[in-house]
């Protein structure tokens, strides 16, 4: 029986003419989606939770033994894992901060009447439409110490961006900023253009300087949408894999996603890596929650 909540099919529609009713349409569209989600998302999620309590290795036929919380205990006591976490934290901080500053700055520049504004905006958005791996590969060429264009222009000689242990992480963050600052720009631009122009006029009449106007009017009014951009970018940066993997294979740039990949598919510690993945998941959910709480606070203001 179709429930009362369901919107009745318009009897004049083409679907109705073909003899379909609400129920068939529901089955046709909703059920495949739900089945797909269960098979490819929910089931693996639960199954890997089970694996995370075992010593299962996908590379052998040996049966999985239940080890309880042993995997979690080992992981959280492993100083190398903590190193991965601190590298990731540093990377997220640099990358997201950079993206917000560059993206918001670009949005401020674009938020005025300039010729060819639409074209410029579209061109600026191109980096984020490229594939991560492709971006990684051509930035590797740009960074190349022998023929890279970056060293040529900056006059840095044979400086090894991606091999230098202090610089490599920054180099990856720069690529991430280049690629994703446009995303922050796009959202900021939407936020900025939603600030009514007459508020700026009022601020001008009220004798507010440009800095005062920016910090007291512009920023608070754009904050909610900027916050959404930051949530998205933090989650993405947290799980960065391809960009860092393609660009550099240094221990100093080993982000958690790379460690996880190696653990799962090179060392075949399936049970251990499942536990690791769960730790990462909990962390991402926790961080996102903090942001969402803050976002709601900003919105309520």
């Amino acid at each position: 029986m179709p429930s009362e909540v369901m919107i009745r099919l318009d009897p004049k529609s083409r679907a109705a003419a073909k003899g379909l009713n609400d129920l068939t349409i529901r089955n046709l569209f909703i059920i495949p989606t739900i089945v797909f989600l269960i098979v490819f998302n929910i089931f693996p999620l639960l199954y890997s939770l089970g694996y995370s309590f075992t010593d299962f290795r996908a590379s052998t036929n040996a049966p999985a033994n239940f080890v309880g919380l042993q995997n979690y205990r080992d992981l959280l006591n492993d100083p190398f894992i903590w190193k991965n976490f601190s590298i990731t934290a540093k990377y997220v901080l640099i990358s997201v901060t950079g993206q917000v500053i560059v993206g918001f700055g670009l949005a401020m520049l674009l938020n005025r009447s300039i010729p060819a504004k639409g074209l410029i905006t579209t061109l600026m958005l191109l980096p984020m439409m490229l594939s991560m791996a492709v971006v990684g590969l051509f930035w590797k060429l740009l960074y190349d110490p022998n023929f890279g264009i970056i060293n040529y222009f900056l006059g840095l000689g044979k400086f090894e961006w991606l091999a230098d242990p202090d610089m490599a992480l920054y180099a990856i963050a720069i690529v991430d900023i280049w690629m994703w600052a446009p995303f922050v720009m796009l959202l900021s631009l939407a936020g900025l253009s939603a600030v009514p122009k007459h508020l700026y006029e009022a601020a001008e009449i009220d004798r507010a300087g440009s800095f005062y106007t920016f910090f007291r009017i512009t920023l608070p009014l754009v904050a909610p949408i900027l916050m959404i951009a930051i949530i998205f970018r933090t989650m993405e940066a947290f799980k960065t894999f391809d960009l860092a993997y393609v660009l550099s294979s240094q221990p100093n740039t080993e982000l958690i996603a790379i460690r996880l990949y190696k653990m799962a598919f090179q060392e075949w510690q399936t049970g251990m890596s499942s536990a690791f993945a769960y730790i990462v998941l909990i962390m991402v959910v926790a961080i996102t929650n903090i942001y969402v709480k803050y976002l709601n606070k900003v919105k309520a203001r």
């Binding site: 007459h198 508020l199 009022a202 007291r216 203001r301």
Partner: peptide
């Protein structure tokens, strides 16, 4: 201003 232009936040 006609639209008041109060700072909403």
């Amino acid at each position: 201003f006609q639209s008041f232009s109060l700072y909403p936040h």
